[in-house]
Nucleic acid binder design. Structure first.
Lengths: 248, 248
DNA sequence: GTCTATATGTGGATAGAC
DNA sequence: GTCTATCCACATATAGAC
């Protein structure tokens, strides 16, 4: 038992191995032989326990998203209860949504950064069955958070809020997925450039916390940025021209 | 000749088909048979003209990135020349970097939104050869823009700037890649929710412009957001506690 | 440069013994 | 539930005629 995460249960062993390998290589590039080899189980076990490779991927996500969805909804419930009908502050909403996710990265029993990276990368996979799956898994939660943001920012056009939610998801996903990929783009290890020790070995827990610390102000700044100056398209609410500041 | 983009030249036909199919299905899930079938050329032509599937992908990008890299560097050159030694405004730097890219989306002869989406998606592909390739292609340009931002924001810790550059790249990449994927996450066509007609058929050109209009204020807001309150890690520049505003 | 034919490998999935 | 053995579709790549 050299691997601490190894589960005696075959099912869990497969899920753990698949989670890591899908994260490292992507779905298409990961063969079932590689997965069962890493999990030290028989090749036929995947089809026996899950039915197919596609179903395996879905189960890898369901296992984690069940917790995440519940937690995110509860966080919003708590906030709305405390506010007693008053609209929430956008910073509270972002903290509930993104903070909950980033805290998964600090908890190995919830998948840690391995799952977070997998999530960030898989969201851009073009495969139809993946997109369909995420649509179903995310719909309810995203919808509630969207409504919360609409209430919190009554003077900002809803279309604008949806766009910015979209941008925020992107910034977060890339930031997460990229903690071992996008040094390619920035030309250096994340944070390493300015003499900041990072990804040394204190490891993923520290990284998740640091990421949250850096990311939240950025997202909030983006969300409350002045609105675009030229609203050349119809929107539900009249948008005054001239770069008004989003109320926050 | 039903397809207007079809080139009589075999090489170009392959590149055009590959660009579109890699974008739609991803690299791994796109076979050379599919590509040569769509391009209406012989299967063996790919290996004859490019050598391998990997080399084909690289060439698909080189064809576009040559223009993008040159344009981005020239845009920065022009700005610095006009400023005559004075530091640039961050908004100018972002406009040069992101605006140049987004303008590619409006020009079909530069690949249009097809290439932009492909770029956004491929940046997260885990394959080693892809990451290595992008590292080489992007290094020089990113480095110059990083230095420009350091000069423009002398009071912001460099590590913070690198993180935020990273976040901005993510927001943009997802926004682009997601214009036909991430409605899954936001639960609706981008912009559609609030009664805004979008992606109807005026098509990608309009979409690229709208995206730029929405994205730039968001990025600028994120870049100039207050710094994180707790700098529990060493940085090159002393960071004052208490959520100071990034100078901009 | 283009084509056919093929070499050679690997993929997901399953039948059937234990 | 687990394992072996195997089916068969499809992948990339190339040899060699034209």
């Amino acid at each position: 038992m050299r691997d601490l995460k190894a589960n005696t249960d075959t099912r869990e062993r497969i899920l753990d191995a698949a989670e890591r390998l899908f994260m490292e290589n992507g779905y298409e590039a990961t063969s079932m032989r590689t997965i069962t080899g890493a999990a030290e189980v028989n090749l036929a076990a995947v089809n026996y326990h899950f039915g197919s490779k596609e179903a395996l991927l879905r189960e890898v996500f369901r296992r984690r998203l069940a917790w995440l969805n519940r937690e995110r909804l509860q966080a919003l419930d708590r906030l709305e209860q405390q506010a007693g009908g008053a609209p929430l502050k956008p910073s509270q909403i972002l903290e509930a949504f993104f903070g909950t996710l980033l805290r998964m990265g600090e908890d190995e029993s919830l998948g840690g950064m391995t799952f977070l990276r997998l999530l960030g990368r898989t969201l851009t996979e073009p495969a139809e069955f993946i997109r369909t799956f995420f649509a179903g898994e995310y719909a309810q939660v995203i919808d509630r958070y969207k409504l919360a943001l609409f209430s919190a920012l009554p003077d900002v056009p809803k279309a604008e809020i949806v766009w910015r939610l979209h941008f925020m998801l992107g910034a977060m996903s890339y930031a997460i997925a990229g903690t071992d990929v996008l040094q390619v783009v920035t030309g250096c290890e994340v944070g390493d450039l300015a003499g900041e020790a990072v990804a040394d070995d204190a490891g993923d827990t520290a990284l998740a916390r640091r990421l949250a610390q850096r990311l939240m102000p950025f997202l909030l700044g983006g969300l409350r940025a002045p609105l675009p100056q030229f609203q050349d398209l119809p929107t539900t609410r009249a948008a005054h021209s001239g770069g008004q500041q989003a109320q926050i």
